[in-house]
């Protein structure tokens, strides 16, 4: 398993904003659906950590905790 975000054909461009965002959303959808220990979820975790600046992550974490994250993460 790759430890960082490799090439993703959905995001072939210089602009990687959505690449980071999509992996963040996918990780939390994944763990809600399959649990934190489900190994494939880890790849999303590594990818969003690799791509997103830490202040983006903490901002979105706060939004999730406060319940105003703009995407429904439930399976």
């Amino acid at each position: 398993m790759s430890l960082i975000a490799g090439f993703d054909a959905r995001f072939p461009n210089q602009n990687q904003t959505k690449h980071c965002w999509q992996n963040y959303v996918d990780y939390f959808k994944c763990i809600k659906a399959r649990g934190e220990d489900f190994p494939p979820c880890k790849q999303f975790f590594r990818a969003y950590h690799s791509l997103c600046p830490n202040d983006y992550i903490s901002k979105w974490d706060t939004q999730r905790e406060e319940g105003n994250f703009p995407v429904n993460l439930n399976p």
Binding site: I4, F7, S50
Partner: peptide
Amino acid sequence: DEVIDPVMTVKAI
């Protein structure tokens, strides 16, 4: 423009 298979990532802000 190609970033195919990087081994590591560094973020510069």
